[in-house]
Amino acid sequence: MSKEEPFIAVIDYGAGNIRNVMKAIAYVGLPAKLTKNPTEILSADGVVIPGVGAYKSAMDKIHANQLLEPIKKAAKLGKPILGICLGMQLLFDSSTEFGETKGFGLIPGEVVALPANEGYKVPQMGWNQNNITIKNVLTRGIENEYTYFVHSYYVKTSDQYIAASVDYGVKVPSIVIKDNIIGAQFHPEKSGEVGLRVWQAFADMVSDKAVLI
């Protein structure tokens, strides 16, 4: 693949569901490379952190593969970074899942268990409706739309980073943004046409066809 052609590095740390993420990126027309090679991560135009599974074992694998530094460096260089589901949660300071585990620390906030409120089963598994609080290229396509969630933990963070949220007894951030760092709690690769709009917007950011406004 030539250097001029933009591509997305999908972080390979043994998370599940990677195939579906790769397919969604391919569907919106950008090459994606599954990689744990720091040089490759830093030469990519955008980085995706997929994720299904548990916080601690994910962080253990990130450390074992020495992936934290290249991801942080890519973030510092201003490359669009997108974390999906657990991948979004990893962007924050820490999680209380199986004791306290430190995350990437790219966005202030912590990951806590969804409360088992009356009428709200845990995990949240299914389609929930997005309320947009910050309108931009990423959130415009999901305004009032349903997207597909599967998770037992959610992010507690300052409102300034919450671009979209869903109501699940508590306010669950569904899109978080801090500068070039983006997280989606739902699975855009499993949210039908609406989810593909998110992938398209991210691909447009990566290939410099769109900016986050």
Partner: peptide
Amino acid sequence: MALAKRIV
């Protein structure tokens, strides 16, 4: 708001 009911 609860989750949408699913048709499968």
